[in-house]
Design a protein around this nucleic acid. Sequence first.
DNA 1: CTAAAACCTATAGTGACTGGAGCTTCAAGC
DNA 2: GCTTGAAGCTCCAGTCACTATAGGTTTTAG
Lengths: 148, 148
Amino acid sequence: MGEVSIPIGKLARSVGCKVQTIRYYEQIGLLPPPTRTAGAQRRYGEGHRQKLSFIRHARELGFPLPAVRELLALSDETDSDCAKADRIARRQLEAVNRRIAMLSSLRSELERMLRHRHGHRIRDCRVIATLADHTLCSQDHHAELAES
Amino acid sequence: MGEVSIPIGKLARSVGCKVQTIRYYEQIGLLPPPTRTAGAQRRYGEGHRQKLSFIRHARELGFPLPAVRELLALSDETDSDCAKADRIARRQLEAVNRRIAMLSSLRSELERMLRHRHGHRIRDCRVIATLADHTLCSQDHHAELAES
DNA sequence: CTAAAACCTATAGTGACTGGAGCTTCAAGC
DNA sequence: GCTTGAAGCTCCAGTCACTATAGGTTTTAG
């Protein structure tokens, strides 16, 4: 009853990913190597499951692996370098806010479409225009196109 | 003054992506082929810019290309097959809502961290636990782990 | 003590880009 | 109208984040 210790296949099913993906994350140093049985099979504990689940969700949300690595570091960095953790958290928070803003406008547009659809035949669907809007961008490639 | 007609480099800068990415999207049939000059260089109009901008944002939000293709189809499908467009919109709306929910909880956690950080030394960072939470998942790999 | 299911390593393949080589076209300045 | 450098072209190789396959070993249910 000391540890949970589940094999890789069960872990994979529990977070909804492939077995190879887990081994891949270990290989690139994103997930710490688990203990092994005498026959060299991987056995995972609850900590691993949480971390892996976090990684999968972050990836589904479109965070690139470097960002995931940073977010993971935030919780390991318990209080070693506060300023650094603070910077990371602040930057990721901004990224999260931008994503939420974009998703919100896409959501209203999809909702509008579904509402109007009931009244049949919706002329000019604005789904594209909604997300094409630049005002919520990370990069400032705005005013471009102005010159020449 | 009939059309806008910008070259590929300018288009790339205006949406913040690489020139090659645009050519790649054309190659896989995501972006319609533009007109060409006598010397075979691509010239784009405003419609292309909007579509491309949409694709980039959708990708940044983590939508896979097949989903992007569907969303693009929504606006082309002006009223040819309402029922189909309706299904797509409904399904994508659910995906959007799940994403927003996950991002919202990640946001509160990051905000909490930044608040507490001011009072120095935040013990146990819960960023991981926040996104590790399965209740917002698309897949139902929940109750797994129960058997055996 | 089997035998099927799950695991192992190693390597190759895929999707979505990204970069580079080698050549051509465009457009700004003379 | 000519030049010349930036930007464009095609084609192909490389990267990132997985995903699949081959060929063999370990676990575990019966």
